[in-house]
Design a binder for these strands. Sequence first.
RNA 1: CGGGGCGUAGCGCAGUCCGGUUAGCGCACCUGUUUUGGGAACAGGGGGUCGCAGGUUCGAAUCCUGCCGCCCCGACCA
Length: 488
Amino acid sequence: MAKEITSREEDYSKWYLDIVRKAGLADNSAVRGCMVIKPTGYAIWENMRDQLDKMFKETGHVNAYFPLFIPKSFLSKEADHVEGFAKECAVVTHHRLMNNPDGSGVVVDPSAKLEEELIVRPTSETIIWNTYKDWINSYRDLPLLINQWANVVRWEMRTRPFLRTAEFLWQEGHTAHATSQEAIEESQLIHEVYARFAEDYMAMPVIKGAKSANERFAGAVETYTIEALMQDGKALQAGTSHFLGQNFAKAFDVKYLNSANKEEYVWATSWGVSTRLVGGLIMTHSDDEGLVLPPKLAPTQVVIVPIPKPSPEIMEVAAKIKKELNAHGVSVKIDEDAKKRPGFKFAEYEMKGVPVRIGIGKRDLEKNQVEVARRDTKTKESHSLDGIATHVVELLDVIQSNLFNKAKQFRDDMTSEANDFKTFEELINDKGGFVSAHWDGTVESELKIKELTKATLRCIPNDAVEESGKDLISGAPSSKRVLFAKAY
RNA sequence: CGGGGCGUAGCGCAGUCCGGUUAGCGCACCUGUUUUGGGAACAGGGGGUCGCAGGUUCGAAUCCUGCCGCCCCGACCA
């Protein structure tokens, strides 16, 4: 009633913004393109971060922190890299303000101009490789496996909460290796970690694959990507892992002595995922009633609502259930608000995406039971108080896998094949989703398709089967299919 | 950067065309009463430099000039 969400069918973009706002995830801020991440939104990010951090550490990485600012000269050392980021950098030119002589506030003090401008990092390859130069001398210093959790700034023309903001939070891994093979394996390992995180924790199915040269990260030799499909049929690049070859080692002169006492350039990778994942999470599962969160990432997994309001008997049972669930590692909130009515609370927690709601009323207690409601299916059932904790723990698992299966079913339904351009165009325009088609490997065909349909080459899937076919544009022979889609 | 739209209470809006008592409505908020198993009702109450700066006028949210900001759609991008 009071908090209607625009339906997905009516306006998908508005629906997304409504969810972000009404579920209390983020607000626009006083700064154009920058959002305020509110406690609930940040809690989701924290859960993502904690899990990813654990996975990085399990695969041998450690965290460090590098400066927010990068000397301008650093950015120009790798040609492709600067080309890729130059257009969207924030630049610091001065270091002091002063009172305006006319009394109208503060102005930049012209005498405080910096010798060399500083760039607010859009990504940290350059400052990190400049540092690695000092850290790496011998093959015994390798591999160097470092990650940092940080904020970066990319001055985007058009922004949307989580999906694209001028400032965003992310992690960026930067590793150095003695051999090309080892670096490639590292980038593929992280690619796997990202895919596993997306599927097992976010319940978001992804296609693993490589980027075309055209879509590659600025300065990379190879970019591996995980691509997810949103409910409006558009693809979302959810995480990328790059094999950087020796590009940055050469640009920053990072060499090591091998065991034969011979000097060699090191091999590099970099990889990152950002708060964009929160946007992907929202768009993968949520519905017209509000946010839907997979249990593994939900800040509150279970909410207990006393019906019609808290009473000593109900609160006693609620506290007992909470304690048991906490013992299983489940996060539980008991709603103690005596003023709001149950119906209001039900709608509110649905809006906020809490996976399981337990309703406890006098009538339930008389029958030694409670009401258990699922957010994903919007169904509810009564369950005996005996064994309730175990039941809920199992239910959370069921919800987690149901969300994944539902999303995967959708993704599969929305993946089509096209063998000629006309079919391709119709699929992209009318149906959306991924379209699998043959491609001759040239940037010309890829750009032509983008120009004609706005679809981009999302990836060359790892599991693409060998199969002879013809490029949609040039008709040139191709040995496997690649995936196209309109993307965020 | 192109196109469109909007700035009036925390949020959503009306009022602006055609200037005129004390700027209004819904939600939210505070107090009270009655309620309470799917978004309660009633009563009372608090909250506004009407985006900013000039100008016209006896009088400006309203007319004029300039500026600023934000949102949406595109191109660019994680």
